[in-house]
Computed example of a mutant assay.
Amino acid sequence: MSSFRKVLGMHVGQPTSDGAGVRLTRVFGGQGVERFDPFLMLDEFGSENPDDYIAGFPPHPHRGFETITYMLEGRMRHEDHLGNVGLLQGGGVQWMTAAHGIIHSEMPEQEEGAMRGFQLWLNLPGKHKLGKAGYRDIQPEEIPRLTTAGGVGVVAIAGTFDDGQLKQVGVVQRPDTEPHLFDLNIPAGGQVSPRLPEGHRVMVYVFDGSIELEGHPQAIEASRMVRLGDEGELRINSQQGARVLLIAGKPLNEPIVQYGPFVMNTREEIEQALRDFRDDRLTE
């Protein structure tokens, strides 16, 4: 008999704003973030009203982790102190490793229309928090897209998608945290059973439609995320059709100390980051 991953928690995002006033939904982040280790935060942004996004994210610093921005609709221009310039557009991904320090901006390249997407923060182990910063601009055509035998569309952003029949390596592979990130488009009456490593932290965020998880008695509606146990199988069903983000990673099991855009292991390291930013040494 199959044993399915248990639902440990249900999370409903809270409206907030960031940057220069961009309206978004914080799905998780802040207090109790250890429950999501190695992930630190997930934001969803989406609006057809330019007043909600036009101010963008002017230059700001980061240290100690990675950011993954996945755009569904719209265009955002990235620039950073390393000289990187990238245009994030519908279907594309921006993968930024802040590490020792990076100062970047993300500004809309549109004055009207829909802008929708996600930003996920992924922690770095202590041994790499002060490593070299980096940035990768991933165009939509670089990201593997496949359809399972059951008709489920898969966008393989990170890790390896494997349902026992199809196996597809995603466009990004990372050590230590071994992240898996898939956009799953499940048709009405569809089902998908991705295989994920035992011991990985697993979250499923429904951003359209609704799903049912094998072994869980209640349907999970849009704008809700479930946090699952570290062992067992995962089977996602959808009676009406759904689109979900499947997020998984290997916990670091290290202390997490966060102050705004800096995430380190100790308070002393946070204080050093603040001094480095003040003294223009964050990006040395």
Rank of each mutant, 00 (worst) to 15 (best):
E178K: 08
K6G: 13
A188G: 15
L42I: 08
I54E: 11
L124E: 01
G91R: 06
D176P: 06
T147K: 12
P50W: 04
V172T: 08
A188F: 10
A55F: 11
I186S: 02
M107C: 07
V244N: 05
L181M: 07
I157R: 00
I211Q: 07
L252D: 04
G117L: 06
M107G: 01
L130C: 15
G164W: 04
G189F: 07
G92I: 03
V206Y: 02
P187T: 06
G91C: 07
R275I: 14
H62G: 08
D276T: 11
H216S: 12
A248Q: 05
T177D: 02
G209E: 01
K250R: 15
M115E: 03
V93L: 12
R174V: 13
L130P: 07
E106N: 00
H180C: 08
D43W: 05
H11C: 14
T69Y: 03
M225Q: 09
I270S: 09
V244H: 01
T148P: 04
E48H: 12
I157T: 03
A149Q: 12
I157N: 00
S210Y: 10
H200Y: 08
A248C: 08
Q218K: 14
M115K: 03
E111T: 15
L124Q: 01
E112F: 14
V152K: 00
G46D: 02
I102S: 00
V154I: 11
G153N: 05
H78S: 10
D280G: 14
G260A: 12
V171Q: 11
T97G: 09
V93F: 02
P194N: 06
A156W: 00
G134L: 04
R116S: 13
T67Y: 05
K129F: 04
G190Y: 04
D137R: 13
H60G: 08
A188N: 11
M96Y: 00
H216V: 04
P261D: 10
L282F: 11
S3T: 13
G131F: 11
E268T: 15
Q239E: 14
Y70S: 03
F161W: 07
G151C: 08
K127L: 12
E112I: 12
